[in-house]
Nucleic acid binder design. Structure first.
Lengths: 224, 224
DNA sequence: GAATTAATTAATGTATACATTAATGAGAAA
DNA sequence: TTTCTCATTAATGTATACATTAATTAATTC
């Protein structure tokens, strides 16, 4: 599956590989790792690994703790709450901006497609496919805002909660009614109703957030 | 003025010093600088300078352009617009959260103090003092939200627009009526009216934003 | 003379040796 | 035993030499 991509530099590869290791859980949340360990693991010297860890620290995926190694991000329920608070707000803004932008239906094809994909996935009870389509939907929504800063922040926070989402994906209820909200949002964007778009998405996100926190608390997942 | 702080490492010092050089304008917006130049300037080897530039790139203050040196951030009017769009949204959220948090008047002393300071500064037509107090006000407002992610993003974006603010500070009209809005926001927070707090601050920020963009465009400041 | 290619150069990228320092543990004094 | 000091150690922090490579210039061919 993995074809060895040509990386511009070892630092770039280190960033990429460490992200993969973190997302896959091979580097467990909360675990500590020495620079030299990671360097050996990635078959390179400490220099590019150090540079990579500093970048990943800035992205909030790990914490560099001098003499104790880097610690992989472990989110508490409060952290999740903070992140979802920001995500909710910025995505709702994105929805409003998308509505204001007066897109024609053709420009919204990608968005429509992912709604359909979610529909199919829910029918098939295929959670992985649903997660993919849902991710695409949110990504496209934010892209339509045309604000690169919103895109960057949202993408960054999505990285931070990626593992948590993976975990909850299989214990959460199937999102059967959620697509009604997606379609309502779509209509609001088509018709240029920014206020409605914002509110619909805000409510959508807020209820998802509530569900998630309760789920995590219910399962006693303190740090993830 | 500058007492040499004890830095944990040269990398830390490089981050600090480069930030100062950028904020002060000694490293001009849009200018390019080789790692070796900067290293000599800061009296250290390339290694900590490289690490510092990677961190500052992640903070959006410069761009590492292999073989062309690092380029200091230069904001276009569109960039300013994007940033202020996010700042407006997140600060308004912070205002709503602060109102929800049910602070007693004593907890809001710092906020009240900076409003008074702004009042005095405007009376004295002391723009620098006003900017300081205004900065304090916004910082405290965000702190009251108790959401560390909002704090981090807002502080980051404030860094990015710092030079632009300095520039406009002396060509903008004195903010005479702006403190009425601050006091109204304060009251909304005291009385726990989240909706009002959010709206007041949103309008406050939105009009400031409009003023700023017009000012920049009017003075033909394309990149700053 | 224009275009292509090869040599040079100047910068970054990387490994490594070494310096520094926080943490650990051993040993001495109370 | 407890505490303090000091040596040890194990990690990061830093400088530097060298590898690599994009960009530039010179050279060659058409």
């Amino acid at each position: 599956m993995l074809q060895d991509e040509p990386f511009k530099s070892n630092t770039r590869r280190a960033v990429h590989d460490l992200r993969e290791l973190i997302f896959s859980g091979e580097l467990e949340a909360g675990s500590d790792h020495l620079e030299s360990e990671l360097a050996e693991r990635l078959s390179m010297s400490r220099t590019p690994v150090r540079e990579a860890t500093l970048m990943l620290e800035a992205q909030g995926l790990l914490e560099v703790r001098p003499r104790k190694g880097v610690r992989i991000l472990a989110l508490s329920a409060d952290d999740m709450d903070e992140i979802y608070e920001v995500l909710t707000e910025l995505e709702s803004l994105a929805a409003a901006l998308a509505a204001d932008a007066q897109y024609c239906k053709k420009d919204l094809n990608t968005l429509a497609k992912s709604i359909d994909d979610m529909e199919v996935a829910v029918t098939n009870e295929d959670r992985v496919a649903w997660a993919k389509a849902d991710g695409d939907f949110h990504h496209e929504l934010v892209r339509l805002s045309k604000n690169s800063r919103i895109m960057a922040i949202v993408s960054n926070f999505n990285d931070q909660v990626r593992r948590a989402r993976m975990t909850t994906l299989h214990i959460r209820p199937l999102p059967k009614k959620s697509n009604e909200e997606h379609r309502a949002l779509f209509e609001a964007i088509v018709s240029g109703d920014a206020k409605a778009a914002r509110d619909i998405h805000w409510n959508h996100r807020t209820s998802a957030r509530k569900m998630l926190t309760e789920l995590l608390n219910g399962h006693g997942l303190k740090r993830i």
